[in-house]
């Protein structure tokens, strides 16, 4: 187990290195540069411009910039933000927890909903409940997430005024848990909708599969209570593949956050990324890309490990 973990961890390093080199290459595609804005600002002289380029390290050759960047990355240094004049780790660190809150809330909602809907639907396949959930699943999967968010915002925030339309806390006197939850409701549900739809269908089919297995029939034949059958046998076996799906999908919430955070003005990574795009803050963009990639790789790793732990038939080498 330990060896397997270490091996997979080591395997992630070249992967992330590959991501970082590719990201850097993409950045070089950009015409202009982060300094372009300075050049067109009134009251900036050519000499000042040269000095700023030098301070940013932009006057060095590209391969050297790449090496410097990767060297710093290996030491955990993501560089300085061009726009905010402070370390990227600070810039990201300020907003990352907010995105974690949003992702966690979304995950909780969609785990609870997809397990509930999925298992209930599997209990009585092709029944009314199953048909209704599968109808909404189709819808959930077909809707653009930001549009769904806009509709929720329009209905619950603008027209009904039940929930705040944007932000994470109220301006004055905010900060409590209740305040947070009220602000969280719409964006968390928005970010969750796609996976509620996808996951509940997954849970339904993998639960159904277990119901068909011989051991369940045996257990039922033995006269075990249905509750115990479900909890003791079916769930455990049905959940193994589900856990891996969740672990693989969860990091992608980060990217879903770009849209949700834009719609709901949530102060997180997605907003940071979007704002950094408009001002060409390369170091922050690169940092966000790397963080996203690291989360995806970590999710895959967890999926592998969990699979190993839950399913004794798989031996870890």
């Amino acid at each position: 187990m330990l060896r397997f973990t270490i091996r997979r961890l080591l395997g992630a390093i070249p992967l992330l290195l590959g991501v970082s080199v590719l990201s850097f290459a993409f950045m070089q595609l950009a015409p202009g540069g982060p300094d372009a804005l300075f050049a067109r600002n009134a009251r900036m002289t050519t000499a000042q411009l040269e000095q700023i380029r030098h301070n940013m390290g932009l006057d060095r050759p590209v391969p050297e910039q790449l090496l410097v960047w990767i060297g710093n990355l290996l030491r955990g240094d993501l560089g300085m933000s061009y726009a905010q004049y402070r370390p990227v780790s600070q810039v990201i660190g300020d907003v990352f927890p907010n995105t974690v809150v949003l992702m966690a809330a979304g995950l909780t909602i969609s785990l609870a909903a997809s397990l509930g809907f999925g298992i209930l639907a599997a209990r009585n396949p092709y029944g009314v409940f199953d048909n209704v959930t599968s109808f909404f699943s189709y819808f959930g999967l077909a809707m653009p997430v930001f549009w769904f968010g806009l509709m929720l915002q329009l209905l619950f925030a603008v027209h009904l005024g039940w929930l705040p339309s944007a932000g994470m806390y109220s301006a004055a006197g905010g900060g409590g848990l209740g305040d947070l939850l009220r602000h969280l409701a719409l964006p968390a549900f928005t970010i969750a909708i796609g996976s509620i739809a996808g996951w509940s269908r997954y849970v339904r089919s993998s639960t159904l599969e277990q119901f068909g297995q011989d051991y369940v029939r045996t257990a039922r034949a033995k006269g075990l209570a249905e509750q115990r059958v479900v909890r003791g046998h079916v769930l455990r076996n049905a959940l193994i593949p589900f856990v891996t799906v969740v672990a693989i999908d969860a990091p992608l919430y980060l990217t879903g956050a770009v849209l949700t955070e834009t719609v709901f003005s949530w102060p997180g990574m997605g907003r940071l990324f979007y704002d950094s795009l408009t001002v060409r803050d390369y170091p922050v963009l690169m940092g966000t890309l790397m963080l996203g990639a690291a989360l995806i790789v970590a999710g895959n790793l967890i999926a592998d490990l969990v699979y190993g732990v839950l399913d004794p038939r798989i031996s870890l080498r």
């Binding site: 992967l15 992608l252 990217t255 795009l277 890309l289 996203g292």
Partner: peptide
């Protein structure tokens, strides 16, 4: 397959946004 792994590790929307905003 290593290339596939790298591509899968990319947060695609981030990358697409960078590409389109710049190019």
């Amino acid at each position: 397959m290593r290339f596939v792994d790298v591509m899968l590790a990319f947060p695609a929307i981030f990358l697409l946004l960078i590409l389109f905003s710049m190019r």
